[in-house]
Amino acid sequence: MTALQRLADLGITLPTPMPPVATYVPVSITGDLVVVSGQLPAVDGKVAVTGKLGAGVSLEEGQHAARLCLINVLAQLNAALPGGLASIKKVVRLGGFIAATPDFIQHAVVMNGASDLAVAVFGDAGRHARSTIGVPSLPLDAAVEVEGMFSLV
């Protein structure tokens, strides 16, 4: 089963990728490595989950935001690669940035929203290295931002 078929089985349709909001490229390819710039939890071009974990954004909302971020990472990959998601051999690394209060300590649980989806879409090839970092704020008041590194077939 392909990644796109797994997404369809999960009821997920990839959106049109958001254009960059500053001076950077959304996807950079070098050799067999692909890096996707940080993606926000956007739906229809608007950030869907704003605020901070520990101050109004629940753990479940944070996990949903991380999942939306990964959906946007996958949309960037699908649009940028000639073979779309079929070009992905492995999810190498995901990086998560969680906007949170200083006393919030469940960053890893929030980021599982993205990691669990990566495994659901790519199977064992979706298991990855990961960093999850708490930050005081993110662009457009997003609650979560996720970036990714992938290897190509």
Rank of each mutant, 00 (worst) to 15 (best):
M1G: 12
M1H: 02
A3E: 11
L4P: 01
R6W: 05
L7H: 02
A8I: 01
L10Q: 06
I12C: 08
T13I: 13
L14S: 08
P15K: 01
A22H: 06
Y24H: 15
G31Y: 09
V34T: 06
G38V: 01
V47W: 06
A48Q: 14
V49T: 13
G51T: 01
G54W: 06
V57T: 14
S58Y: 10
S58C: 08
L59H: 14
E60G: 05
E60Q: 13
A65K: 06
A65S: 13
A66T: 06
R67Y: 07
V73K: 07
L74D: 05
A75F: 07
Q76L: 03
Q76T: 12
N78A: 11
A80Y: 05
G83F: 04
G84N: 08
L85I: 08
A86R: 07
K89W: 05
K89D: 12
V91Q: 07
V92K: 12
I98H: 01
F104D: 11
H107N: 14
A108K: 12
G113L: 08
G113E: 09
G113T: 07
S115K: 15
A118I: 02
A120K: 15
V121N: 09
F122A: 01
G123A: 07
D124L: 02
G126E: 09
R130G: 10
S131Q: 05
T132F: 11
T132E: 11
G134P: 11
L138M: 04
A143I: 13
A143Q: 07
V144A: 15
M149C: 07
M149G: 12
M149S: 08
F150A: 02
F150Y: 15
L152V: 09
V153K: 13
V153C: 03
